[in-house]
Nucleic acid binder design. Structure first.
Lengths: 214, 214
DNA sequence: TGAGTTATGATACAGATGTATCATAACTAG
DNA sequence: CTAGTTATGATACATCTGTATCATAACTCA
């Protein structure tokens, strides 16, 4: 058995190329050749490691999903256990806004895929339905716990608050990508939202070294 | 001067074809030929009336923007003058959700353009920045008026509430398009939001024959 | 060292796509 | 009726794109 090369590594490199192309020139600029060039490999290699464009695109989507899950898991792990509801929620919104360049590219490409999935049922709708639903459930749990502990403002419904928070955050992310809002403007709206969700009492005790909402 | 044909009508027909193609097969399926076929005209005519694909795409975007403005103006005109803040806001969210098939196509294509605009500065960012900003200003005015009349819940900031409402609505629309939420689920979240925005008091006095939030 | 397998290069090809060109039909004005 | 202009058809072309093919380099193992 000859010339063993790490397939996963090669594939990862190519997928990174794809994401860079899609992030800079749009997902319509993703071609076998543009990805190959961006990744610094030959067209043949993209074919070799992904066979077809459809599979390449699919693989990139799965990879984005995986990365996103990993980042979120790592973020959660960095919180004190168990995290306070407010810390949990702030970590969530901080992760969900396109704050730095990497994050911007990630959200841009992810959104591009989401739009593709709207007309292409082949392109797994799982990531765009199950993913948010799972996050929403996590948020529901945390908010219910907060409510039981009397940390939420009165008259709120945990389930609906989770949906509202998730959707609002996502909408703000989009408006940042599109250039309608700056990240800090979006952050301001979210801080306002959280201040009304939790009582105006417990504001932002930074629980991690990373940038917290402020 | 011979064979006078109504250019605007021809252009409109072609643009309708474009929107149908983009709505059914995605904006990447929009080609000179697919649009021509969908509109029932020859490739040559698409060239003749729009010269280049870039101009065709641009024209379609401007047309979508115009339609949207007209629908909103007509909707406002149907409200009692001056409309109550709650009626105004409910008309807004009702217009902003992809409820029927036409609306679904409109929002889908609009969102597709928005994603394109994220990487293509040529594609006027005006519609995606100025448009929402203008809507947001309208909402701010209405909410300030409501606040002055004591119709809003206490402790709210009209400006931030406008941003929150706009973004939340948009985010819910996206989640509907993607199939994560049904329209009625989205409506439920919005009703909840509005009930907390206005005091839990004045619920939905239907002010138009059209479907109101309920 | 040699045989066999993996990884990669070079190249070809068919189909699609945007655009250009040439011709001519359809029509109006004088 | 005819000349001239607009509107449309037919077709061609270069480029891009996904995919396939053939060759061979690179390497491992016996």
């Amino acid at each position: 058995m000859p010339k063993i090369v790490d397939h996963e590594q090669r594939r990862a490199r190519i997928l990174e190329g794809l994401v860079r192309v899609a992030g800079r020139r749009g997902i319509h600029a993703v071609t076998m050749r543009s990805v190959a060039t961006e990744a610094g490999v030959s067209l043949r290699l993209v074919q070799y490691y992904f066979q077809t464009k459809a599979r390449l695109m699919h693989a990139a989507l799965l990879d984005l999903e995986r990365q996103s899950h990993e980042r979120w898991a790592a973020r959660l792990a960095r919180l004190p256990q168990p995290p306070s509801p407010r810390a949990f929620v702030e970590a969530f919104v901080d992760e969900a806004l396109p704050s730095d360049e990497d994050s911007r590219v990630f959200h841009l490409v992810w959104t591009s895929y989401a739009v593709l999935a709207m007309t292409d049922p082949e392109l797994a709708e799982q990531p765009f339905v199950d993913g948010p639903n799972q996050l929403e459930r996590q948020l529901v749990d945390v908010l219910k716990r907060a409510q039981a502990d009397g940390l939420l403002a009165g008259g709120l419904d945990a389930r609906l608050e989770a949906a509202r928070l998730l959707t609002l955050t996502h909408g703000l992310g989009t408006s940042v990508l599109i250039g309608q809002r700056t990240v800090s403007a979006a952050t301001r709206v979210l801080r306002y939202h959280l201040d009304h969700l939790f009582g105006r009492s417990d504001r932002a005790q930074p629980t991690t070294a990373s940038t917290s909402i402020s």
